[in-house]
Amino acid sequence: MAETASTIPLAQAGPITDELLNEIARHAEQAQHGECTHEGGTLLIMCAAPLLRELQQRRRVMAHIAQTAVDFQNVHFLPGAQT
């Protein structure tokens, strides 16, 4: 993490809850119409990277699940699990 000249660490977004997601979306919509405040822009910038990284991870997982689901040779049923 980059630090300022005074060695104070830069601020980071905390956990991104559903409530915070709604607030971020609202600020993003306002920004699309040129109505974003300084605070809203700061929130968007602070949360963009963690949200995009999570989206990338979820896409990779979903692609892996989709690929694995097609390959039924990779599925093994336990005794008694079949009906």
Rank of each mutant, 00 (worst) to 15 (best):
L43H: 03
A31T: 07
A63R: 07
N22V: 03
Q30E: 14
Q56P: 02
M46H: 14
M62P: 03
A25R: 11
L52N: 06
E54I: 02
P50M: 02
E23A: 14
L52P: 01
G34Y: 04
I24N: 01
N22S: 15
P50Y: 00
A25K: 08
N22I: 04
G41P: 10
H27F: 13
M62R: 04
V61D: 11
Q56F: 04
C47I: 01
Q56T: 04
G34D: 14
A31Y: 03
T37Y: 03
G41W: 00
Q32L: 09
R60P: 02
L43V: 05
M46A: 14
A28T: 10
L21Q: 06
R60N: 13
A63F: 06
E54M: 04
T42V: 06
T42R: 14
H27R: 05
N22K: 13
R58D: 01
G41A: 07
A31F: 04
I45R: 14
L21T: 03
Q57I: 07
E29K: 08
T42I: 12
L21H: 05
R53F: 01
Q56N: 11
L55S: 10
E23G: 13
I45P: 03
G41C: 10
Q56D: 15
L51I: 07
T42M: 12
M46L: 13
C47P: 01
H38V: 10
E35A: 07
Q30N: 09
T42P: 06
R58H: 09
R26K: 09
L52I: 08
P50C: 04
G41F: 01
H27V: 02
M46R: 15
A25Q: 12
R59K: 12
Q30Y: 08
A48W: 01
R53C: 06
P50N: 04
H27K: 04
I45V: 06
R26E: 14
T37R: 08
R60L: 05
A63N: 10
L55R: 00
R26I: 00
C47E: 00
E23P: 03
A63G: 05
G34V: 05
L52T: 09
L51V: 01
A48Q: 11
R59E: 15
A49G: 12
M46N: 13
L21W: 02
L21A: 08
A48C: 03
L52R: 07
E29L: 08
E35D: 13
G34A: 15
G41L: 07
E23M: 11
G40Q: 05
Q56A: 11
L52Q: 07
E23F: 01
H27W: 12
G34S: 13
G40V: 02
H33Y: 15
I24G: 03
A25N: 09
G34P: 10
A49H: 08
E54K: 04
L21M: 09
C36W: 00
C47A: 15
I24R: 00
E39V: 07
L51Q: 01
T42G: 12
R26T: 05
C47N: 01
E35T: 01
Q57L: 12
H38R: 09
E39W: 02
R59C: 13
C47W: 00
Q56C: 08
A49E: 15
G40K: 02
L55C: 11
I24E: 02
